[in-house]
Amino acid sequence: MTVAPAQPLASSPLAPSAAVREGWLILRVAGVSTAGRVRTLRLVSLTGDTLPSFTPGSHIVVEAGGRTNAYSLTGDFLEPIAYEISVLRIPDGNGGSRWIHDDLDVGQELSVSPPRSAFPPVASAQHHVLVAGGIGITPILSHIRAARLYHRSFEVIYAHRHDAEVPRLRELRALCGPDRLELAQGRAQVTARLRKRLAEQPLGSVLLICGPGPMMEATETIATELGWPSQRIHTERFSTEALDPGSPFTVKLARSGRQLLVPSGVSLLEALEAAEVPVPNLCRRGVCGECRVAVKAGRPEHRDLFLSDEERTANDSLMCCVSRAHDAVLELEL
């Protein structure tokens, strides 16, 4: 029995392309609009096909002027024609948002990751309380779209500073209507609103928060004081750890004497396969244990879900489909 390589779906934008990283998409900037410090981009596929559906609250990682930044998707989420993001210009950040504001133009191409879901809606919730601060409204926008499509009860509390513009306000008002959107300006007003609303939510409600760190912590504190268990509180924290392509390292094959380079962004398994060193494998995600290889020397960097804590500390084997090396050279029993 042999398993043929996976067939990508013919019209899928995930089909192999010149994308820098495996699975990433090349999209074209089809539209740009700027309101104050917020620039909203519409990104479309190069072939005009619809883009992969995503779970509301998802974000994409964008390669922007040499940096990688995560931005929430704000638009329609079922086979959308475009991905839409809103970027706040941060003058003293890593430069990604400055590049998007100052250097990016309509018609240009961007390399973006597939959507990643880390802030999903809670289908079973009786009611969603969506709290956003400033640019934190972005993932909340797709939550609102989901709530409307699936007829779920929701309300939005949108906190903004006195002197700042309010990103996407017109669209927000259109999506929420008058009864489901509360604007709150300044800390005192926001705190008062939260203290009132969070004390009167029916059992079964959930709280989703996205905004600047201190604002999220303050909201969480108010909720906790009012008896909300942590399981009901969900915050959007972007994390790009799992996408970390890792440092390159050299692998020595003890039995054959060969040496291979494992570049950044290429898995050890892929490097071995490219060098025609066969390793049994199945899930290619670090869970099934099939690609386990014995380690003779060097410290593995374990990224799998298979090994026990003792097996990890022993450092005498690793899952080559996901794990890498802490040291420059790793010697394997191959």
Binding site: L198, A199, E200, Q201, P202, L203, G204, S205, L226, G227, W228, R232
Partner: peptide, 10 residues
């Protein structure tokens, strides 16, 4: 009681 309960109920 449950139908009228608020979040914070144990």
């Amino acid at each position: 009681e449950l139908a009228a309960a608020r979040v914070g109920t144990r």
